[in-house]
């Protein structure tokens, strides 16, 4: 696709619905450490359905808190500011994306599963590798493939073409996207994230989630999402699997200082068993995240 078409993509972008106000407020709060528990609680409590779902998640087995969490304030001080901010942002983004739906051939459920798995694994890996803000990793993991949604929505014809090309051979989907569209889902996704005015680290990590070695600032976050994405492909979501499973990116693996096996390469096994356990634990959490929004609405 030539440059004029690329511009079309950009222009069309603006027609996409913007994020609801609460997401933007949360996004602002993400960089402000002077937020009190009641500030955050007030913001969340303004949305009834969100409040109920967050309390449900907070009381889920995933967090395993021994007492009942009855108020958002308690959820904030118990689960942590970082977790609550990212949880709220994730839920509003999820609700927002759900409203879009997808084009024919776009398996929305698989997209969800892959996104949520990547988010949970990114959160898990951020703890494992000492990345300070697990919540950043979670949200970024959740929206990393949002560009695919854009392609299916705004370019259904090209989307079908991409799917067809990809199914025949074992080529990387993002290469095919680049050929057909002139940009891949990672780049498109980062434009959208920018457009939503979400924190800059998210757009950069989304942009480079298949090429963490190209990231300039958010090197660690890009590496986290890259590795989490690769692990997520091992757990279900076969249809979603980006047709061609890359090897683990050695650059990302090294950036994160993750464990190597005795014969040199990445020690995938070591992490995979823990991730399996983490995803099982997160099951209750995923259910609330996934279905409750619609039920309440």
């Amino acid at each position: 696709m030539d440059k004029s078409k690329l511009k079309d993509i950009t222009r069309n972008f603006r027609d996409l619905p913007t994020l609801p106000g609460i997401a933007l407020q949360i996004s602002d709060m993400m960089n402000n450490p002077n937020v009190s528990a009641s500030d955050l609680a007030k913001l969340i409590s303004a949305d009834q359905s969100l409040t109920m779902r967050i309390l449900k998640v907070a009381n889920s087995a995933y967090y395993g808190f021994p007492r009942k969490i009855g108020t958002i304030t308690l959820a904030v001080v118990v689960l942590g500011f970082d977790a609550l901010k990212s949880l709220t942002l994730s839920m509003t983004i999820l609700d927002h994306l759900k409203k879009w739906g997808g084009a024919d051939g776009f398996d929305f459920n698989e997209f969800w599963r892959h996104s949520i798995y990547t988010a949970i694994i990114a959160r898990f890996l951020s703890r494992q590798t000492g990345y300070k803000v697990a919540g950043e990793a979670f949200v970024t993991g959740l929206i990393h493939d949002v560009g695919k949604l854009v392609i299916s929505q705004k370019f259904p014809e090209q989307f079908a073409e991409i799917l067809e090309t990809a199914s025949g051979n074992g080529r990387k989907v993002y290469e095919i996207e680049n050929e057909i569209l002139g940009a891949d889902h990672a780049e498109l996704g980062s434009w959208l994230v920018d457009n939503w005015n979400l924190p800059g680290y998210m757009s950069e990590a989304v942009a480079y989630h298949h090429h963490p070695e190209k990231a300039a600032i958010e090197i660690k976050l890009s590496a986290l999402v890259n590795t989490a994405n690769r692990f997520a492909l091992d757990f279900g979501a076969e249809k979603w699997a980006e047709t061609y499973k890359d090897d683990f990116n050695p650059y990302a693996w090294n950036v994160l200082k993750m464990r190597n096996s005795t014969n040199g390469g990445p020690d995938e096994k070591y992490y995979r068993s823990m991730i399996e356990h983490e995803l099982e634990k997160a099951d209750s959490f995923v259910q609330v995240l996934n279905t409750e929004g619609e039920a309440v609405r």
Binding site: P33, V35, S36, A37, T73, V77, F81
Partner: peptide, 11 residues
């Protein structure tokens, strides 16, 4: 009050 605690307080 717990509600007055800030992110920085915990840090």
């Amino acid at each position: 009050p717990p509600k007055d605690f800030k992110d920085t307080d915990f840090e």
